[in-house]
Design a protein around this nucleic acid. Sequence first.
DNA 1: TGAATATATAATAAAATACTTATATAATTA
DNA 2: TAATTATATAAGTATTTTATTATATATTCA
Lengths: 115, 115
Amino acid sequence: MDVQTQIEMEKAAQILKLLGDKTRLSMMKLLQNNECCVCELVEIYKASQPAISQHLRKLRDIELVKERRKRHWIFYSLNKENSYYQFVLNVLESLPSEDERLKELEKQGLRINCC
Amino acid sequence: MDVQTQIEMEKAAQILKLLGDKTRLSMMKLLQNNECCVCELVEIYKASQPAISQHLRKLRDIELVKERRKRHWIFYSLNKENSYYQFVLNVLESLPSEDERLKELEKQGLRINCC
DNA sequence: TGAATATATAATAAAATACTTATATAATTA
DNA sequence: TAATTATATAAGTATTTTATTATATATTCA
């Protein structure tokens, strides 16, 4: 059994509700290993910029992700400081990697690689 | 790391969406260790019978739970045959036990204990 | 077989969620 | 400092989800 502390039922439901969306879940998996900016996510998920932005806001509101501004862009990544980080990892662990999607972007020359 | 196979992103999102509801999540945790009939769940969650029935239907539709009829009652439990059972267990593992709720019922003499 | 009991389903209304379009903000660069 | 770029927010609409009320079904028991 994993090292993990127990988590309040209500909080767990709140987190799982957010993860229970195909786009957000896939984004979370992608952000597990990568820092991505909004425009990359827009490209990857073929969604509108506000749609992606609103998904990110929800994830940010409960502090599952954090942001880091760099030059023009805001880069998102998983927030490892969150008390529920381990719980989230447990869920993500079973999911297939989405890293290929970023590699695709890179091939197309659309990866934002500042610094 | 747990023994677990990878699960399709879309299927995972579908399951997590169902688990992302306080009542259903708690029910799933309860059913992890117990077989319960609908009227017990109605009592425990202080919800209407159709509300509980509809939650169960959703869980049954994607085969997360199964039913077993016995005398007047239909008893629900986790469906261990499901391909995603291990994934579900991984999620439930982090949650606090809900077994106390059943013990409470028992104290009140409301536990259905056929056979 | 008929009444009682437990559960399911249908129809509807209410609430929550997600997407779109338009606009605002905030940092950057010229 | 003005224009540009990336992202966020707001408002409105469409869609989905949840709960309620009413009714149906199916088993049990008398």
